[in-house]
């Protein structure tokens, strides 16, 4: 009971700043000019800084090896521009142009272009088997599903 009697209620003033000045730095983008002088000096002298030096999207054309810069010619960007001589399209479209309405090019349309004429001709000349397969198949008709799949993958494409 005696300890209760000695209890003195006081209000303290905290002299440290909120959370000891720690901030959620994920919220702040620290570009080169931001931060204290010490921080910027550390960034300058550190060969591999924790926060990478912001170069406005510019990529280095080399790397640092033991403090020395090594230039790599392969890292120099090369712009490959197509030759546009004889190319008729220009930046803008004339107001005179009528609206172009095109339907979607479907698998059926491709079939009509590639297979349909041959089938119609075979039917006319009676060059079809009883089950509808051609007697003299063209190169496209000989193509199996497996072959077509492999041909598309031989390009190195990763669409499949």
């Amino acid at each position: 009971m005696s300890s209760f009697a000695n209890l003195i209620i006081t209000r303290g003033i905290s002299t440290s700043c909120v959370r000891h000045g720690k901030r959620n730095f994920k919220k702040f983008s620290l570009f080169n000019k931001r931060g204290s002088r010490q921080y910027k000096e550390a960034q300058r002298n550190n060969p591999e800084p924790d926060i990478p030096i912001y170069k406005r999207g510019l990529r280095d054309t080399g790397f640092y090896n033991e403090g020395k810069y090594v230039h790599v010619p392969e890292k120099v960007p090369e712009l490959i521009v197509p030759d546009l001589t004889g190319f008729k399209l220009k930046p803008y479209v004339s107001y005179k142009t009528p609206d172009v309405v095109q339907s979607e090019f479907t698998a059926e349309d491709l079939f009509n272009v590639v297979y349909a004429p041959k089938i119609a001709q075979d039917l006319k000349e009676g060059k079809l088997n009883n089950d509808g397969t051609p007697l003299e198949p063209s190169a496209e008709e000989k193509l199996t599903k497996e072959d077509a799949y492999n041909r598309a993958r031989q390009t190195g494409s990763d669409i499949f």
């Binding site: 008729k88 399209l89 803008y92 004339s94 009528p98 172009v100 491709l110």
Partner: peptide, 17 residues
Amino acid sequence: KDTVADDVTEVTFEPRL
């Protein structure tokens, strides 16, 4: 700098397998 109507509406796509 305007593309003329004939060049815009020209269909250069050839369907292939």
